[in-house]
């Protein structure tokens, strides 16, 4: 976070936060978001800061940032995007999600269910990118089901630029999470109600 404070946030700032998973970092996502097409899409949508949690993949991040900086300079400062990164966070990424929430920004994440559940509670637009290289893993199914319910957008490493543009419209029409009423049942139960019912507490 030290790097981002060099370019302090103003009311006009708009933060895109990318998290790749701490234990087995999703290096393709780091490369993809730092690709010229993604950077241009971010610039076009008015983002001022790009913050990346790279986990243990520091070298991938550093290499990609060099390429990204070269691209931004060659464009002659048309896209003014401050790029910063960090490896781990002790506070479960709460500060980063808050930053996105306050700046009306965007979260791009690997499709781990923990991060999805945490990020959606900040009511921020979320793009999840399933890691297709993982075997027997249900990230793809979960991301697709969540997208069908309009909670988030599913992206992949080859089309981040289009999904970044879509995210601006999605911001206003995304469903609230956790849902107040969901599913086909009219009387939706909370887990507390299920517990009470199991024990026969009906009052």
């Amino acid at each position: 976070m030290a790097e981002i404070s060099e370019n302090p946030l103003s009311p006009d700032s708009k933060v895109c936060f990318v998290t790749t998973g701490a234990t087995a970092p999703f290096t393709e996502l780091i490369r993809s978001v730092l690709r010229p097409s993604s950077l241009d899409a971010l610039g076009h949508a008015g983002y001022t800061h790009l913050l990346i949690q790279y986990g243990t993949a520091r070298s991938v991040f550093q290499q990609s940032v060099e390429v990204a900086q070269a691209h931004l300079q060659s464009e002659g400062g048309k896209v003014a995007l401050t790029i910063a990164g960090f490896d781990f966070d002790n506070n479960a990424l709460k500060d980063q999600f808050k930053l996105v929430q306050d700046s009306k920004g965007l979260v791009i994440s690997h499709a781990g269910s923990g991060t999805i559940l945490a990020a959606l509670r900040y009511q921020v637009p979320l793009v999840v990118v399933p890691n297709t290289s993982l075997l027997d893993n249900h990230q793809e199914e979960l991301a697709a089901a969540m997208e069908r319910s309009n909670y988030l957008l599913k992206g992949d490493v080859d089309n981040l630029d289009t999904v970044i543009s879509t995210a601006e419209d999605f911001r206003v029409k995304m469903s609230q999470f956790p849902p107040i009423t969901s599913g086909k049942h009219r009387e939706t139960k909370s887990f507390g109600a299920i517990m009470d019912e199991t024990l026969g507490f009906m009052d």
Binding site: F177, P178, P179, G183, K184, H185, K189, I194
Partner: peptide, 21 residues
């Protein structure tokens, strides 16, 4: 209890009440 409708009724008894987490 399951949290996705597609799993409702699995094993003849899985209940679905929406996403609970």
């Amino acid at each position: 209890i399951v949290q996705w409708e597609e799993l409702e009724g699995k094993g003849g008894r899985a209940e679905f009440w929406g996403i609970l987490v």
